[in-house]
Design a protein around this nucleic acid. Sequence first.
DNA 1: AAATAATTTAACTAAATAGTTAAACTATTT
DNA 2: AAATAGTTTAACTATTTAGTTAAATTATTT
Lengths: 198, 198
Amino acid sequence: MTTEEQIVNAARKVFVRKGLQGAKMQEIADEAGINKALLHYYFRSKDKLFDHIFTEAFQQIIPSLRQSLNEKADIVIFIQFFVPFYLNFIQKNPYLPQFIMHELSQNPERIAGLAHAQNFPFDSLKVLIDKAIKEQQIRFVEPENLIINMLALTIFPFVARPMIEQIIFKGKQEAYENFMQKRADDIIQTILTSLRPI
Amino acid sequence: MTTEEQIVNAARKVFVRKGLQGAKMQEIADEAGINKALLHYYFRSKDKLFDHIFTEAFQQIIPSLRQSLNEKADIVIFIQFFVPFYLNFIQKNPYLPQFIMHELSQNPERIAGLAHAQNFPFDSLKVLIDKAIKEQQIRFVEPENLIINMLALTIFPFVARPMIEQIIFKGKQEAYENFMQKRADDIIQTILTSLRPI
DNA sequence: AAATAATTTAACTAAATAGTTAAACTATTT
DNA sequence: AAATAGTTTAACTATTTAGTTAAATTATTT
């Protein structure tokens, strides 16, 4: 692993966990196993390093769906594919959503410069959904609602983990983990049962 | 309005918007229309002031449901009551969820000391849900899932606003606002259709 | 009127932190 | 072997910020 990769890995870890303000350059240097001078030798400033990490993280959290949309041209199959896939990704990066949403909440203009944001294949999904409605495979639903609901059900348990664990599961960590293990199936069931034609 | 109230209002505004680290004592003093010395005269430290605000905010975001649970002993009616009620509260405090979740993500132990956390009438809700299942008013569902899903569908659009506005609604603010105006009905429909007996 | 409490002013301290610098050293490339 | 790039060390600067202090001023209470 090159030094630059070490730095990026360390910066990702610290920034994602602590945010732009909470992260300290010294901690990133320590995490990378180098010193602060070398950190500035590679990335001139904290802001430059942060931009690098944020852009990378943002591109990761916008799922690239083009493949799965062409292959499985059926909204039900898409949902069954997407939910476990995306949930699994977030499970491996549980602090990513909170990081992105916090930084965007602090500085919403940041999203403007990110080309990937416009790259989400929303229109293809819309076509799939409209087709399923017309064929009476699912009830009428606004595509925006369906997509936001799917994302909400998937992402929320991670950003709200401390509250869910404490209040719903009364501090029992294993109860939360057990809940999360079944989560993909639960989301799919909730979405698909809500889409049954009336 | 007393000076202490002015300070608390200013601190709430600044802390909720910028978080513990992002908030500056000088900015709170300015917002309250006083000076930094007086701020420390009332609240000895930033941490003490923050604790005050966070505790207050946390108690607000845990909905007090006891009344509505006793009166309307029917889970469907409860959902129809709770969703618009809670959505309306968050609409008036759109940064509150992000604030709570970010601070808890940074420091999850903070939740332990908050008595209100244990005060959520989860068991009463469970009884309502189990009763509705037994009477075949709704399909079988884990109470934990139902409650978390309701909260997810309600809260997520606020914490993810910048992403939703930019990616789903392509930067059109009025499209997001229009979506949010119909949101209560959409959530109720999603939840209730998903609960139809199989 | 006197005493007390609230508030301002303005300068101060102490700590944290981003970023710089120069010199020395090590590894790699030419 | 010489030159170059990568890395360390350690001390340094500049800035931001929480928190303090003391004196003066204003408002409120007794």
